[in-house]
């Protein structure tokens, strides 16, 4: 016996009549094929329906939402209005915060600039590099003993290398 082809079986499952309909009544193999596919499709339908029922918020009064949207003339513009309102609110909050942080940053920058200027002035007023200070103190000290800090007169300037005729 020649069985129905996969295409013919698909037509039967889809509910499309085929000339070989009689074969299904006499062939249990083909009938079982069709029944198997139909059972799977029925299970599929049940799963979709249960899934949909589960996700559909039945307690949520959707018809009222739709009705309120439908009755509101301006309803389609509502999302844009919300976006604009949110943007305005964000700007109102963000601008003062930005200005405050900008002021703080400017003040800190001014302090850093002043400190840098002081450092530059201090460097320019020095007669020699900072690393040479111990050597210059040794050269300024009297022979036979270490230099005595306490013996220096208050407010006296340290001797420069040029004055001592040392390092040129």
């Amino acid at each position: 016996m020649k069985h129905l082809s996969p295409e013919q079986l698909s037509r039967v499952v889809a509910g499309i009549p085929i000339p070989e309909d009689d074969h299904l009544r006499n062939c249990s193999d083909c009938a079982r094929e069709v029944e198997h596919a139909q059972n799977v499709l029925m299970a599929f339908r049940s799963s979709v329906r249960e899934w949909s029922d589960k996700l559909d918020h039945s307690e949520f009064p959707v018809h009222e939402v739709v009705a309120s949207r439908a009755h509101s003339v301006r309803a389609p513009r509502a999302p844009m209005a919300w976006v604009l309102a949110a943007a305005a609110l964000a700007a109102a909050v963000a601008i003062p915060i930005y200005q405050d942080s900008r002021d703080r940053e400017l003040r800190a920058q001014a302090e850093r600039d002043a400190q840098l200027l002081d450092d530059v002035n201090a460097q320019l007023s020095r007669s020699g590099p900072l690393a040479m200070d111990p050597l210059m103190q040794l050269m300024a000290a009297p022979v036979g003993g270490p230099p005595k800090e306490s013996s220096k007169a208050p407010g006296s300037e340290p001797a420069t290398m040029q004055d001592k005729g040392g390092i040129q």
Binding site: P6, E7, L9, S10, V13, A14, G15, I16, A37, L41
Partner: peptide, 9 residues
């Protein structure tokens, strides 16, 4: 429908 069912089968 035939094509869909055939693919599914």
């Amino acid at each position: 429908l035939f094509r869909a069912v055939h693919t599914v089968r």
